[in-house]
Structure formats: structure tokens, C-alpha cells
Simulated assay, not measured.
Amino acid sequence: MAASDTLYYSHNLNPRVAVAVARHVGAPLRFVRADPMGRDRDAFRPINPNTRVPVLVEPGLTLWETDAIAMRLAARYAPGFWPQERREEVMMWVSWSAHHFTHWAGVLYFERIVVPRHFARGPDEALAAAAEAELAPFTAVLDAALAGRDWLVGETPTYADFRVASALPFAAQARIPLDGFANVRAWHARLQRIEAWRAPFAGLD
């Protein structure tokens, strides 16, 4: 990759993960904050017709979606972050996050953080309560998986950890219920000691 390769991002949940990955693996990217659903919509549509971020743009290659971007950057700069010999395990957690843990935690993030900032209506607390009920058994699964281990796959952090923890930096504001899940809380405290995870936007706008 050349230093001119560009990662378009915002401060929302999924772009935050992409920026954290890029900075953790030391990718020499140009970071551009974008508003593809607002002021940048028309200019952004040729880059990503979904008008969403993150997007990684390289000469001859444009990648939408956080997981694809993470796979690309890990392969280029830090193969151990998505280790080839354990790729199926990492992918298992990525898929589990998308369909279960982060899916329901994301409802809480959206209703309690995004809606008050960007919508005329208030949070749908009935929907949030239903999401909390759906989330609880998956939080218990994660807590059990972390018993006696520091990371989800292997002895060092991998993309599995970043992906499953996507919503947890917003846990207090989104009121994601973690009481009673000591292993999850300790695991995210370990992630918070990683500078790229704790402050992915440091020095960016």
C-alpha cells in the first residue's frame, strides 16, 4: 500500500472499529472524516453507493465494510491480528458479533446515542428493553468464553476481540447491561489498555 491510500471514516460504531484496526496495525493511511449521508452524499456516492463509512480506497481497489477492511489491513501489516492458522475461529467470532452480541448491543447504541443526536423522536425504550433481553444470553456466552483466558483467539489480541467489543466503548452512554459479567468487563478493560482501541481518533478530526 502507498501512503496515499485513504480510509474514510466517521465517529460512529463501525467506522471507529476500522480506524482502531488501522492504527493498531500501523497502516500508513490518509484518514478522511466524511459525512456520506449528509453534506458529502453526492460526492461520496461514486466511492460507496451505499453512502456509508468506513471505506478503504487504494489504487484499483475500494473496500466497503469494516470486516473486509480489517482483513485487508491485517494481511498487509500485521498478519497475527487475523492469523491465517486460526482464521476460522476469528471469523466465527466476527459472525457471532454481527448476528448476536453486537447486533443487539447496536440497537442500544442506536436508540440511546444516535437517535437523540440525529432524530426528532426520542429513544424507543420498549425496543431497547427488548434488545436488552435478547442481548443477555449472548453476554453470558461471551462471559463464559472468556473464563480463564485474556483474549478470544490465542494469546494476544486479534480482530475477534476488536469486533466483538465494537459497542463496548459506548456501554455507559448506551446503558449496555454488563453487571454480573466480570469476565467481559475485565476483557474490555484489557482492550482499553491498547491505545489504538482506547483512543482511535487521537490526532484526527
Rank of each mutant, 00 (worst) to 15 (best):
L7S: 07
M37G: 10
F81C: 01
R86L: 11
R30C: 03
R23C: 00
V55T: 06
D124N: 06
P28V: 04
F181N: 06
T6V: 01
W104G: 07
A22L: 09
E134C: 11
G203E: 08
R41G: 13
Q192Y: 13
M37C: 14
T51H: 07
V164R: 06
A68G: 10
Y9T: 04
A27S: 01
V53N: 05
A2Y: 09
T139C: 06
W104E: 07
A129V: 12
A22E: 00
L73T: 03
L13H: 09
D205F: 06
L204K: 07
A131N: 07
L73W: 00
A189W: 14
S166R: 07
N12E: 15
A20V: 00
V94S: 14
P169V: 05
R87F: 15
L168T: 08
P59D: 06
P54S: 03
H188G: 12
H100V: 12
P137T: 07
E65N: 07
L29R: 00
V17T: 11
P137I: 06
P123T: 13
A165M: 02
S166D: 09
P123Q: 08
W187V: 04
D150T: 04
R121T: 13
V153C: 09
A182R: 11
I47F: 09
R72Y: 03
M92F: 12
A202T: 11
W93N: 05
F101M: 08
W96D: 07
H103Y: 13
S4C: 10
E125H: 14
A144V: 14
V184F: 04
G154H: 09
R175E: 15
F31S: 00
A145S: 12
Y159V: 02
P79G: 05
S4V: 02
H118C: 15
L178V: 07
D67K: 07
R121F: 11
L7G: 00
H11K: 13
D150E: 12
L204Y: 10
H103F: 15
A130P: 08
R33K: 12
M1I: 09
M91R: 15
R117N: 15
W187C: 12
D150S: 02
A196Y: 01
F181Y: 12
S4D: 11
V184I: 10
V141Q: 10
T102C: 05
R39T: 14
P49R: 14
A105I: 04
L29S: 02
M37E: 13
S166I: 06
A131L: 06
P177N: 10
S95P: 11
V21F: 03
L7H: 01
A167I: 09
S4M: 10
